[in-house]
């Protein structure tokens, strides 16, 4: 398992497009929002948590089709599927690698972008916490979507269509934590629910991902 993780991380770093693109996209989305809604500080402060969550979610979505499609193209996927690693473990590791190269940088960059949107001082901590707990679920759900569409040529658009509705609960709870945190309200309930959704997805979804991947490989 470690071997696969190390390889995926190396590939993401060397081939580019892993760290860089997602972060740059996140930055651009956040920069574009004030152009669309106006520079009024009070308004930006109010919508900052939501914008940051949406930006992170879209940035995460951007690189989903690379999780499995590249391995499919060069034949590694067949070879990994016949290797001693269970496919459930392989998809979990792939999701983890995706989170480390996409989700984690977003979590770290979010506070910086929060400054651009005049996020309230109380909000930074909870923003980081909510993203740190929520983005792993985004990666795991995304891997499921990638496994569903790996057999389809140019399946990127379909992948977004399938994955975005699945992101709804994570987005609602995650953004709620960030919003309540910024407004100084209690975050206990949404935080617990967000944690539950993330734990549930990480525990169960890899089985579904592996099942559909097997179907797609035959």
């Amino acid at each position: 398992m470690k071997a696969l993780l190390v390889r995926d991380l190396k590939l993401a770093v060397r081939a580019g497009g892993g760290f860089g693109l997602g972060l740059a996209f996140f930055l651009i989305v956040v920069v574009l929002v004030p152009f669309a809604v106006g520079p009024e500080t009070a308004l930006l402060t109010r919508i900052a948590p939501g914008i940051l969550w949406i930006g992170a979610l879209l940035a995460c979505l951007l690189s989903l089709d690379r999780i499995l499609a590249l391995d499919r193209e060069d034949g590694s996927l067949d070879l990994i599927a016949t290797a001693p690693l269970p496919l459930e473990a392989a998809v979990s590791v792939k999701a983890l690698a995706h989170w480390l190269t996409t989700g984690l940088p977003l979590v770290i960059a979010a506070p910086v972008l929060g400054v651009l949107l005049n996020l309230r001082g109380e909000g930074y901590g909870w923003l980081v916490v909510s993203l740190a707990i929520g983005t792993p679920a985004l990666s795991v759900i995304g891997t499921f979507g990638a496994a569903l569409t790996v057999g389809i040529k140019r399946g990127g658009l379909l992948l977004s269509l399938l994955v975005l509705p699945l992101y709804v609960p994570v987005l609602i709870f995650g953004a709620e934590v960030a919003r309540r945190g910024a407004e100084g309200l209690s975050v206990a309930t949404p935080l617990a629910l967000l944690g539950a959704v993330t734990c549930g997805t990480i525990a169960l979804l890899p089985f579904a991902s592996a099942a559909v991947l097997r179907v797609n490989l035959r």
Binding site: P165, V168, P169, I172, F173, E176, T189, P190, L193, V197
Partner: peptide, 8 residues
């Protein structure tokens, strides 16, 4: 899940 999330 979304149903409950939206309710919340």
């Amino acid at each position: 899940l979304s149903r409950y999330a939206v309710n919340f």
